[in-house]
Design a protein around this nucleic acid. Sequence first.
DNA 1: AGAGAAATTAAACAACCGTTTGAATTGTGT
DNA 2: ACACAATTCAAACGGTTGTTTAATTTCTCT
Lengths: 231, 231
Amino acid sequence: MTDPSPPTKDRLLEAAEHLFASRGFDEVSIRELAAAAGVNIAAVNYHFQGKENLFHEVCARRFSAQRDRTLQALEALQKESNPPPTLAMVIRTLVNEYLEGTLAADGGPGFLMAVSRELHEPEACDRGAMFKNMIQPVFSSFSSALQNVAPQLDPDQMTWIIASIVGQIHHFIMRWVKKEAMDPQNETYGIMLRIFPVLGEPLPVYIEQVTDHITRFTTAAITGMNREESA
Amino acid sequence: MTDPSPPTKDRLLEAAEHLFASRGFDEVSIRELAAAAGVNIAAVNYHFQGKENLFHEVCARRFSAQRDRTLQALEALQKESNPPPTLAMVIRTLVNEYLEGTLAADGGPGFLMAVSRELHEPEACDRGAMFKNMIQPVFSSFSSALQNVAPQLDPDQMTWIIASIVGQIHHFIMRWVKKEAMDPQNETYGIMLRIFPVLGEPLPVYIEQVTDHITRFTTAAITGMNREESA
DNA sequence: AGAGAAATTAAACAACCGTTTGAATTGTGT
DNA sequence: ACACAATTCAAACGGTTGTTTAATTTCTCT
């Protein structure tokens, strides 16, 4: 069973991941998928029982990869207790893993955009299960990590704070319009973003700068809200 | 020229605004549009030279309405100088206008989602002109309002801060899944959102609560970042 | 009233979609 | 080597899409 070229199903998954990420679900036909994978058109329905199912499998693969990556980073941060992690470090870890994982992956921000649209459509996919299996674990882990470094944090506020963080992250991801590898040796940090400034031309920035900003902004917000409440 | 029933073009625009907002661009055919407007199928191409153009006109209408609404609110806030507006009030004004204008409108969050997808696709629409005419004015007005209440604010940071605010707003809008008029007399505040909590079931909240959170979060972030810098 | 532009109509068009069919091919276990 | 299942294949199916056509109706102006 040592196939030199991977089986049809895997090649289809790989091609689908790339095409769906770069062009969205509706915009890519199964004829394109089959051509890109070098397989017959009927293979999609034979192996996945329809285009929709193939898309769901691709989503599940990438979601779980992103989830595992983030959980691992948060876990590692919790373990290294010398020096103990700070609030800013916990936030930075989540933001960094989210941005890097989403932008460095094949297709860049396209996949997040494709899946976010699908998530808000009719009950095509089981959003409840998707959320419970993919998103909830990350939320829980991040939430408890936050509690550790900011014990005074009101648990009721946790949901709101996480929403504000995720909102910022998604917004910056959606604004990524160009992918340029500046330094071949460290290409992750070469991915660039052009955000629209208040005035003037779009501004090219690095992932690092975005991580820095969200971390500083969010850390200041959390500590500030605490200070305000105890006053 | 006192037509009792509006001309074909207007009825088409109205039906298109509703349908595009609730189901997206791809998911609604021009046959549905024509049927909903009670006109012939060919009317779309006769009056708008294609489905795409009709969508752009709908977008332009709603974008400019949202822009005018927000600009007006910010302007009004600047004029009433007794008591002079605070940082929190400026932020609250932008957030409130954005949320109310987007969610109370026909189709609710659907339109923002439909247009945000379109904005990131190939050069179908002139994003440069769209940004310059629709978004840039609001950014400028909001930016100068912020400068007035927080003169120490670094202009270079303004772009980042606005991005963080807009990111939060969009995220909460996207999470709106249900529209319920709780109080017929004040139906705007009856629109509800179900955000995914860290644990447990989706939580129904009011627009007011979202506005409060974003305002407090952002205000604390800005003042906190300032404090941190001057330390 | 009548000529000419504008608007509306039913019908057809060509292209593409996701899926299915049934035969041909490849792989597997005995 | 043989029977049988799993897979691949070219071809076609039924349906929908956005757009166009050409005839007809409605409106406008002299």
